[in-house]
């Protein structure tokens, strides 16, 4: 399986390290030709407005949207979650997303940087172990569609969701040494989804 990391802007390096720790050899994706060469994709943390705009300018927006719709496994953290959401709130005027996940996400829902926090939360992957989650100007999910499974919550807000081949977290597992979320994406989301396509 070839896994790419969208490398237009954001914490690409941390996602690459996390993926390597999970035993895959990731590549960076900035161009349509590079997107065509990967089976699965990670959308990093960063500024969702900047990433969407660069994707558009460099002809990556439509191809990426089509790949997501066609079943390419994708994991998005923070800005990546926003980019996968069908609807967003508190967005910049005309801000576009790749979509695919039937959720409504509120940008910067937890507040400004002074409100950014870390916390031990449960991640419903079958194990009961807590995960250290880092939230930075983080979004939360305000509405989930009927096929969307909520994997983590903070207070009552969903902060990790999955629907078929798509996984999104409003926190940044790539900033910690615990790679369970990336492993979950590879083993439980991407592999089964790609198996199905074959």
């Amino acid at each position: 399986m070839k896994v790419g990391v969208l490398a237009l802007q954001g914490d690409v390096r941390e996602h690459i390290s996390a993926l390597i720790a999970c035993g895959v050899t990731p590549t960076t994706v900035r161009r349509p030709s590079e997107l065509a060469g990967v089976d699965a994709l990670v959308l990093p943390g960063g500024e969702s407005t900047t990433i969407a705009q660069l994707a558009e300018i460099f002809g990556l927006f439509e191809p990426l949207k089509l790949r997501v719709a066609a079943g390419m496994p994708v994991y998005g953290s923070c800005a990546g979650m926003i980019l996968l959401a069908d609807q967003i709130l508190d967005a910049k005027v005309d801000q576009k997303t790749f979509g695919g996940l039937d959720i409504t996400v509120r940008r910067n829902a937890f507040g400004r940087q002074v409100d950014s926090f870390e916390s031990d939360i449960s991640f419903n992957d079958g194990s009961n172990e807590l995960i250290r989650a880092v939230f930075i100007r983080a979004p939360w999910v305000e509405r989930v569609g009927k096929d969307v499974e909520v994997l983590s919550r903070v207070d009552s807000h969903p902060v990790a969701v999955r629907s078929g081949h798509l996984l999104a977290t409003s926190f940044h597992p790539e900033l910690t040494a615990d790679h369970r979320i990336h492993r979950y994406f590879i083993d439980e989301v991407a592999k089964p989804a790609l198996q199905k396509v074959k």
Partner: peptide, 20 residues
Amino acid sequence: AEVTGTGRVKRGMAEMLKGG
């Protein structure tokens, strides 16, 4: 417990600005 202002949260914020 939610902890604000940790080194990871502060440095992490800058990581998100990379390439920008």
